[in-house]
């Protein structure tokens, strides 16, 4: 059983992405033994008004509802975002996705606090994407710097009742992020962009296995890249189980009973 905590569906504006339609992504998940995936939409990353993208997602995944953990993209710097949140909760979204660099706010901004207050009240986990892809590969007229994460420890401490997940993040490149992951039980990181030989097995004793979840960033990235990291590192079965589904179940309240 594997829960992929970092996936997208839909349309990415900068290049063609295979397997980004729900039925294609389900086929990819089946071929690789992925039980469930937390998904948001590519288009919500660049839309000013993210609401239509959330609506599209719910409709698109309806035939496969038990396989997806839908994540509503929220832009707390956009007017009346609270209504988007209300609609998302009513529609059954299981968590919130944030892209602060594309949507133009900082983690330390007031709107971030407002959003985390709301997430706590509604018991929704919040996923923050530090980047969508390598800045060196960005469109030359659309270079979007990565999210500055130095405030994450303070936020995770202040909002200790909100589960937080950092995606597309290399925590070992920043001592404050490593300290926050180690100290805050509600803060997690996915493995999608971990690099270095055997990085996963060295990261476990540094921040604790409870902080690490399986995330592939598929279909933007090859799903197999994340899966092979589980093989490259020497992991105990207990650690493996925690990474591939245990921590995700705690994070998203996912309770799939029939492993694929």
């Amino acid at each position: 059983m594997i829960v992929d905590c970092n996936a997208h569906l839909g349309h990415w504006p900068f290049r063609d992405i295979a397997n980004s339609a729900p039925e294609q992504f389900i086929a990819l998940m089946d071929s690789r033994g992925i039980t469930q995936a937390a998904v948001a939409t590519f288009q919500s990353v660049v839309y000013a008004d993210v609401h239509p993208a959330n609506c599209w997602l719910m409709e698109a995944i309806a035939p496969f509802a038990e396989r997806f953990l839908p994540q509503a993209t929220i832009n707390p710097a956009f007017p009346a975002w609270e209504r988007d949140l209300e609609t998302a909760i009513a529609a059954g979204f299981r968590g919130l996705r944030l892209y602060p660099n594309y949507h133009g706010y900082e983690l330390s901004d007031d709107c971030m606090h407002d959003l985390l207050d709301a997430a706590g009240e509604n018991r929704l986990p919040v996923t923050i994407h530090q980047r969508m892809f390598d800045e060196r590969r960005h469109h030359p007229r659309c270079i979007v710097p990565a999210v500055e994460l130095s405030a994450i420890g303070e936020l995770a401490t202040q909002y200790h009742d909100v589960s937080l997940l950092l995606c597309n993040c290399r925590p070992y490149q920043s001592e404050p992020i490593m300290e926050a992951l180690s100290a805050c039980a509600n803060l997690h990181v996915d493995i999608s962009v971990l690099e270095g030989v055997g990085r996963l097995e060295t990261l476990i004793p540094q921040i604790g296995v409870h902080s690490i979840v399986f995330g592939s960033h598929a279909p933007y990235q090859y799903l197999d890249a994340a899966l092979l990291k589980l093989r490259e590192s020497c992991l105990s079965q207990t650690d493996m189980d925690a990474i591939v589904y245990g921590n995700a179940q705690r994070l998203f309240g996912s309770q799939t009973s029939e492993p694929v």
């Binding site: 690099e195 270095g196 030989v197 990235q221 799903l223 197999d224 890249a225 092979l228 990291k229 490259e232």
Partner: peptide, 18 residues
């Protein structure tokens, strides 16, 4: 490009290719 990169992340580019 290991050992800075992961052997696995890059092998995934080939194993996962259609």
């Amino acid at each position: 490009d290991a050992t800075g990169r992961s052997l696995a992340s890059q092998l995934g580019k080939v194993i996962g290719a259609s």
